[in-house]
Design a protein around this nucleic acid. Sequence first.
DNA 1: ACTGCCGGATGACAGATGTCATACGTCGAC
DNA 2: GTCGACGTATGACATCTGTCATCCGGCAGT
Lengths: 205, 205
Amino acid sequence: MTSRTIKVLLAEDQSMVREALAALLGLEDDIEVVAQVARGDEVLTAARDHDVDVALLDIEMPGATGIEAAAQVHKELPTIKLVVLTTFGRPGYLRSAMEAGADAFLVKDAPAAQLAEAVRKVLAGERVIDPTLAAAALADGANPLTDREREVLRAAADGSTNAELAAALHLSQGTVRNYLSTAIQKLAVRNRAEAVRIAREKGWL
Amino acid sequence: MTSRTIKVLLAEDQSMVREALAALLGLEDDIEVVAQVARGDEVLTAARDHDVDVALLDIEMPGATGIEAAAQVHKELPTIKLVVLTTFGRPGYLRSAMEAGADAFLVKDAPAAQLAEAVRKVLAGERVIDPTLAAAALADGANPLTDREREVLRAAADGSTNAELAAALHLSQGTVRNYLSTAIQKLAVRNRAEAVRIAREKGWL
DNA sequence: ACTGCCGGATGACAGATGTCATACGTCGAC
DNA sequence: GTCGACGTATGACATCTGTCATCCGGCAGT
């Protein structure tokens, strides 16, 4: 397997970016993009159908996030190496990606050369992560929110009122307020809007 | 000028995406990327220094938005054709881009082939806009918010409290609430969080 | 000169939100 | 088998937010 080309699956929802990344990887002699998908929930089947060495997964995708897709592939096809790619350098994303079995974590504002580099490195068994981001992830610690707090906060993110949240989540209004209150305190902020913002920034939402 | 290659300036903050787009355009025989910048406020000088035919501008950039950059270039170097590229198909963005003198407006989830197409078309004097988005822009009408309302809403977007907004904008708390109240009514929503969300979606923020 | 809109402000009021104490059942850890 | 964490709920309370009426000065249009 020394001289075979590396077969890459590319998952990214924005066509223009996806095809541009494919063009970029296509410039490398030892890399071949054998499949492209635009949705997280198409990654697993594409991976099964195409004898893939490395899957390159964007996080923000419809259907399923790249992290969810990574977890699926890691479970079913553990020999496939996983590179997670994202616009947002959120510490919590890095943590979840690693827990999902990712071998590399790249942010899109890193130099393009790192992409092909990462593909080669993960195939050689190395792990590739941004040291700055790794430090931030460790400094932040784990997500302090419970499942329910996170759900409520996520639902509250669009500006829904307590009554709407209660109805949507089958909870009492008081309970909704309790969850939001504890989330607000855990994140050390003053209202739900700030809580949403901070949780998003950290990648905890 | 029939057979000369088209000289393109590429402005996009995410290195990986920028270089990938450059690779994509580089595959076209008649197109050459002669300059790349990562900030909106570097577009004008780069355009002056490089004898550019077409500038390809992402909207979301540090320093200045692609729309602001487009306006600057349109004013100083009106012969340069302007293609505005964005992740978000927000009707208000299209409107502002057109007002800034843009010749084409593309969203990043359009097929990659449209990029080179658009470059050629604008150079031929055509305008390129997504018809769906154009319809949405016309249906939405113009931004109904006044300058002040927009400023206050933008400042409120991070979850700041009325007191903080008042201090930051040198207004009384009551005035802040009045502006937010009128914004909320104009956008036909129920609270500031929804107002922020809707204004963002429309590209009015 | 008048009208209307904008920026700015006040005060009063109703309703939404955030806090706190308290309670109960379930479940996993020790 | 007890303890702690979690999910869920209630009631009371203080504060924040959103609405409304009303006011003022400036400035653009007619």
